Amino acid sequence: MDDVEVRDELRDVSAAVLAVAAHLSVRDVLTTILTSARKLVGARYAALGIPDEDGGFAEFLADGVSDEEWAAIGPLPRQHGILGAMLCDPNPVRLANIREHPHFGWWPRAHPKLTDFLGMPIADGDEIIGELFLANSCNPGGFTAADEELMRLLAAHAAIALVNARLYEHSRELSIVEERDRIARELHDAVSQKLFSLRLTADAASALLARDPARAAAELATVRRLAAEASAELRAIVVGQRPADLDGDGLDIALRKQVELLDRVHEPVIRYAGGGYVPELTEDRKDAVYRIAQEAIHNALRHAGASRIDVVLTEHEGATLLRVTDDGAGFDPVDGGRGLGLASMRDRASDVGATLAVVSEPGGGTSVRLVVPA
């Protein structure tokens, strides 16, 4: 192999590795591993199996066959033949003729006829987390030792990408569970208590209606007030769950839209100041800024009794600065503030390397200041 061929091969390997590592979805990672492997060694057919807990395949992807051919082949392979044997063997298998393998059994009538074969495990430590199967080399002489080394290299990087994708999807699942728990707490704390009070007040008004109409009317006024407060709390929770289009709109526009929406559905005046230059942030930092702003605004709406809330996004000494201030009741940051989401905001800030400061005092309003490095 001359220098040009070596450079071309290294470039192809690098492109394949980068393509695999670029995805966070498990399905995308698997598909990219499969197509990259087939292209890298010039195989007519390629397949990728993911083992289940019973010694078979939880998933089985193929490349090089049409949808019609795949449907005609029939059910996924389980534990038979060379594919099943490789699920327990950490060593690669390279054959000039797959039929020569001692575990070769059969294939369905519609299955493509395979000749030369290269099988490579994808392992995370001692655990086999996938198997690559390549068949019918497009190059004269079949698969080579160099092809086997290329697959070994790709499989090592594929294992890292696959584990990372699984961890990412698991973390998203945990985030969804945490978000559901938060919504449940908000519904209980902010709405169900008001509905309970509303029911008791309505019962009292009903009992007083015949003997004391004036007091009954007062109780009904309380019912109207409690119903309005419960409705406002529900609107706040629903608005808070609407996903922000941070990718499409950008942080500045997404924050402006959120503030304008909250200003329409709540009595306090809520204003946003932004639109100037702010440093470019990573996706996780954009999300943290947005969520902390959201939490700070909702705290002011629910707990502060504020008449005005101001949200400012700007650049400060090369960093992104978010300020949310209100003229509400304030609280003692030492003894108070529990239940105001301060711990959640601090956790979000810490996770992205940002600095959060909350300044408040009884009767003096509250200021939330977030500084995010570029």
Rank of each mutant, 00 (worst) to 15 (best):
E361T: 10
N299A: 11
A357N: 06
A357V: 14
E315Y: 03
L321K: 12
L356F: 07
R348V: 06
L301Q: 09
N299Y: 01
V324W: 10
R346P: 06
R308S: 05
G330L: 09
V312S: 01
E361M: 09
A343K: 10
G353C: 04
L321M: 15
M345L: 05
D347T: 11
D351R: 15
L313C: 02
L321A: 15
L356N: 04
G363T: 04
L321G: 07
V334L: 13
T325Y: 04
N299K: 15
T314Y: 00
G305R: 09
G341P: 06
E315C: 11
N299E: 12
L321S: 14
D347W: 04
A306M: 06
D310N: 14
D335Y: 05
E315S: 15
L340Y: 14
G318L: 12
L301H: 08
N299T: 14
T314D: 08
F331R: 04
V352C: 02
R302N: 04
V324F: 09
S360V: 04
L301C: 05
G363E: 07
L301V: 11
G353Q: 08
T355P: 00
T325M: 12
L340Q: 10
D332L: 08
S307Y: 01
R348Q: 13
V324L: 10
R348W: 12
D310A: 14
R338L: 12
E315L: 05
E315W: 00
R348C: 06
H316Y: 04
R338G: 05
G318N: 11
E317T: 11
G353K: 05
T325R: 15
G330Y: 09
L322C: 04
F331N: 09
E317N: 14
D326T: 04
A343I: 13
A349M: 07
A304R: 15
E315K: 03
S307M: 00
V352A: 00
A300F: 02
V352K: 06
